[in-house]
Design a protein around this nucleic acid. Structure first.
Lengths: 184, 184
DNA sequence: GCCCGCATGTAACTGGTTACATGATTGT
DNA sequence: ACAATCATGTAACCAGTTACATGCGGGC
């Protein structure tokens, strides 16, 4: 019972919104939680199997739909509460961009500026994506009571994207190559 | 030759600053790159073995020192340049905090506010840590030519920490519980 | 009749952490 | 002498991705 899996938390979580198939779970995670979470099929199906075996979810043989959706049981909802209350464990940081910039002397100033430009454009694109997601959530009346929480995560993304954008722009201004005598 | 390992990039990188033992490499990664990178012994030593076998680093039997330091060879420096030029692959996002907040309806408003307070305090502490690192780098005259790149990574950390801080504070103001009738 | 998208699953592999085992050096 | 720290490594395990295998249902 004690084995706390992040994947099971995510799966139980999306099923708490509404019952769906494993395939739909993966789509929901990709499209809705995609800014801060990811799961692959190879994780989801075994997780669903374990959850069903321990009675936390059950199959609903829906009559008209092609396949059977999974639904949260009562004990599943309790278990979800338990998992949500566990302190969020953050993965050890691994930022490939900063790693490369840190060794910028070896990489050369121009290549660093390329990396910064990519990061800037990426942050810009992310900001636009967040605006779209925000509009979608605001328009979705079916989940009005979940809206403030969903928007919380979008706002978080916007803040960090904007921070990255500003950092990249400031760094592009600061990091000028006086005279390219670096290797490469 | 093609197997591109992030660990080998990190190891070659720190050895490009100065030769050191495997133990010191781990300390350098923890203390200096800690804000954006991490490696464990279980990765570092095998990586050093592979790097030595392929002639990218060599042992320097230093006379007075207790143990032999590893130093970058010429081909090692070339390989480092190659790896640095590979596009930084970012790991799929997995933010346990946002995952929990997203399911905030199940978790309850008060628990969400606790999470936000923790995030705020954490960001605050990180900002203070960055200030210390910044001072240390600025004072370190031995690596003056690497300073602008190292500061770049510190500035990145400061920007995101400040963004998180502001997001958490704004969210604490926005997310008020009108009347706690949520489960838990 | 055929292809595409839905749907479920498994097997192999990779990258990484943790814990353990061991010993040398140094300071007290 | 003894403890703490430096130093090197290995074995077991875990989480997660990728690629593969399979089949059903609907639209063209």
């Amino acid at each position: 019972m004690a084995r706390s899996s992040q994947t099971e938390l995510a799966v139980l979580g999306v099923l708490s919104v509404e019952p769906m198939t494993g395939y739909a779970i993966r789509e929901a995670i990709r499209d809705v939680l995609g800014h801060f979470w990811s799961e692959s099929f190879g994780q989801i199906y075994p997780a669903l199997g374990r959850l069903e075996a321990s009675g936390l979810v059950r199959r609903e043989g829906s009559s008209r739909a092609r396949a059977s959706a999974f639904a949260l049981t009562e004990s599943g909802r309790l278990r979800l509460g338990e998992l949500l209350r566990e302190p969020p464990q953050q993965a050890p940081p691994r930022n490939g961009l900063l790693l490369r910039l840190f060794f910028g002397r070896e990489l050369g100033v121009e290549a660093c500026r390329d990396l910064l430009r990519d990061a800037r454009d990426d942050a810009q694109r992310r900001l636009e994506a967040y605006a779209a997601v925000r509009a979608e959530i605001t328009a979705d009346d079916a989940h009005a009571d979940e809206r403030p929480f969903w928007l919380l995560t979008v706002t978080a993304g916007e803040h960090t994207a904007r921070a990255t954008l500003e950092w990249a722009e400031a760094s592009l201004t600061a990091l000028v190559d006086p005279d390219d005598r670096n290797p490469g």
